Amino acid sequence: MDFDFKKAEQALDKLSFPDRLKSVGHLIKYTFTIIGEDEDIIKPWIRMLLYNFVMVSGLFYAWLGWWYELPLEGWGLFVAVVLFIYKYFYYNKQEMRMSHIVYETIIGNDPSYKSAVAACKPIQSQTRKIAWLDILMAFVNKAKFAGGGFVMMLVRLFIAGIGEVWDLVNHYLLPSVAVDRLEIKPGVKKMKTLKSQVPESLVGVFGIDFLGSVTRRIVVPVYIVLGIIAVGLGIWLSGSLPSTEIQGAEEPAKYWFTTLQFSWVPVIIALWVGKLISSLIARTVTGIKVIYFTIFYTKITHPDRIMEKLQDDLVNYLKLKEVDEVKDLDKQGTEEE
């Protein structure tokens, strides 16, 4: 069967948001069955959330403190900046530990977070290299390429394409290091041969960004709702919170106010809550990907090591069998064969 990866990705991209959300829900459900085998799997995820909470809270405390002269706002900014710079290294360290715990769990061992820390110490240099690549890709993706015309359009498309490819490469590199302790260059080379090793039952989902832009699609309405609530509270609580006077118009007949007392505190708090929610979703998506691709990598490269009782469940998990578009493409590929 010659499966069309591009067509599969396009099919998933065309999923309506409710259907995509439903598919992600099924994926999360299967993910929790894996986590149920060993609760230590989620400990790196919890640490990433705590790290992110301190980083984001420090930044917003500094912002609020700068406006309203709160104590130690400078330290809040300092902590936020330091944690932001180091976050790529910390996140990759935790993701590597999560990948190790997942692998040890599905092959029948009983790993702990402490054992994962010890096991990942010899591969710290590879972890740092992946972090540096993450930083490079973050810089490239955020770089502004001004100008119009056909050439600049191609440059922007190329940059966007690199970001998508790196996301996939990154999540196959993690288990290649965590499981087989490969260096980055051999790990990238091995990726080129992985496709030929994929079992026919799984070829339909190899190389698909199954979560797509679901994070962004969930977060936008959250920010909209929080924004509406924050504006309402900013007006309502202006008498009891630090507030500023917003000048309206001299003709109240045309506008509903001439001057308005408004507190920005609820707005800053709403942005803080929104950022925490978006970070929670982003870290959860990353955790799901680490679990998924670690299992996929193990199934491709070391299928004989996986516990017998998990073999069927893991194949169903990896096949995204609840996503109708993938099943339809599988059927189509079978008919064409």
Rank of each mutant, 00 (worst) to 15 (best):
I28G: 08
E245R: 11
P44Y: 05
A253I: 11
C120V: 12
V82M: 11
E322G: 12
V326S: 02
G148M: 04
V165Q: 11
I41P: 02
Q261R: 11
L237W: 10
T244L: 08
T286R: 10
E95A: 15
D4A: 07
W45F: 15
P186R: 06
S176D: 06
V273H: 00
A131D: 05
P44L: 09
A80V: 04
Y88S: 14
L133G: 13
R216V: 07
I184Q: 12
A8N: 10
E308H: 09
Y91R: 08
R156S: 07
Y91W: 14
V82R: 06
K93V: 11
V81A: 12
Y223G: 10
P266K: 02
M153V: 09
Q10V: 06
I229P: 00
F296R: 00
A143W: 10
K254V: 14
M48K: 07
I224W: 08
L280S: 06
A62P: 01
T294A: 03
F60I: 03
D167F: 12
K331V: 12
V205A: 02
I228Q: 05
W75C: 03
S278E: 08
L27K: 01
K189G: 04
T298Q: 02
Y88T: 13
V198P: 03
K142G: 05
P122H: 13
T298L: 00
L318W: 05
D209W: 04
D4E: 11
F206Q: 08
A119Y: 08
T294P: 04
S196F: 06
W236A: 14
N109G: 05
E322D: 15
V82S: 09
